[in-house]
Amino acid sequence: IEKFKLLAEKVEEIVAKNARAEIDYSDAPDEFRDPLMDTLMTDPVRLPSGTVMDRSIILRHLLNSPTDPFNRQMLTESMLEPVPELKEQIQAWMREKQSSDH
């Protein structure tokens, strides 16, 4: 029984630690959010139409349809242009958020 109590305490400790580690990014500025999924972008790319999306989301879309989801023009992965300035701004915002939450 004592071992179970210790195990339960350890589990509670881990759960509390994980809860502290989770950071809420739901208040991200609109320009940091993917327009299709409304999630925080981690690897922004510009489509030929000028729309900026997260790379993982547009690549997932391209698996089903080789088109720009906003104007239905033909689109391939090679046409995606990285946006390193925005990526750095997002990373800086995330770092600031992490340091203010801890």
Rank of each mutant, 00 (worst) to 15 (best):
F32I: 02
A8T: 09
R20C: 07
T39A: 03
S65Y: 05
L6P: 10
K97E: 14
I58M: 03
E77V: 05
P66L: 09
E96S: 09
N71F: 01
E81W: 02
R72F: 06
Q89R: 11
E81S: 14
E88Q: 09
E96Q: 11
A19V: 11
F4V: 07
P29Q: 03
K97L: 03
P84L: 13
N71I: 01
R72S: 00
L7F: 14
S49Y: 15
F32R: 14
A19T: 12
K10V: 14
E12G: 07
E81N: 03
K10L: 03
H102R: 11
E81Y: 12
E96M: 01
F4Y: 08
A8G: 12
I90S: 01
K5V: 14
Y25S: 14
Q91S: 03
T67Y: 08
L63A: 14
E96R: 04
L40H: 11
A16S: 11
D54N: 04
I58N: 01
I23T: 13
D27E: 12
D27Y: 07
L36I: 15
A92L: 06
V83I: 15
E96L: 08
M53G: 05
Q91L: 10
P35R: 00
P66A: 11
A8S: 14
M74N: 04
S26A: 11
A19E: 13
D101N: 09
T76N: 08
T39Y: 03
N71T: 15
K10A: 08
N18G: 05
G50E: 08
Q73D: 04
P29A: 03
K97R: 14
M53K: 00
A8P: 10
R33C: 03
L63V: 11
E22K: 04
K10D: 08
S99G: 10
L47P: 00
K97Q: 13
M41I: 07
I57F: 14
K17R: 11
D24E: 14
P29T: 06
E22Y: 12
I57N: 05
K87Q: 14
K17M: 14
M79R: 06
H102Y: 12
M94G: 13
H102N: 12
E13N: 02
T42I: 11
L6S: 14
E9Q: 08
K17L: 10
E88K: 09
D101S: 04
A92D: 13
K5P: 08
K10R: 12
K10M: 15
L36W: 00
E77T: 07
I1R: 09
T51I: 15
L47V: 15
L40M: 09
S99C: 08
K5I: 06
K10T: 12
S100R: 09
P66F: 03
L59P: 01
D24Y: 11
P35S: 01
E9G: 08
S100N: 11
L36M: 01
M79F: 03
E13V: 06
T42M: 00
R95W: 05
S26N: 14
G50R: 08
E81D: 10
V83W: 07
W93K: 02
N64V: 03
E77A: 05
L80M: 03
T76S: 08
E31A: 10
A21D: 14
P48T: 02
E81G: 06
S100P: 15
S49P: 01
K5T: 07
L75M: 04
M79S: 01
R33N: 06
K3Q: 04
T39G: 01
D38A: 05
N18P: 04
N71K: 00
T76Y: 06
E77K: 06
D101T: 03
D43S: 02
P29E: 01
D24T: 02
R46S: 10
Q98L: 10
R33K: 12
Q73M: 12
E12A: 08
E85S: 04
K3N: 13
L86I: 08
Q98E: 14
S99H: 06
L40V: 13
L6F: 11
A8D: 10
D38G: 02
E96K: 13
A92R: 03
A8E: 13
A8I: 04
L7Y: 10
M74I: 11
F4W: 06
K87N: 09
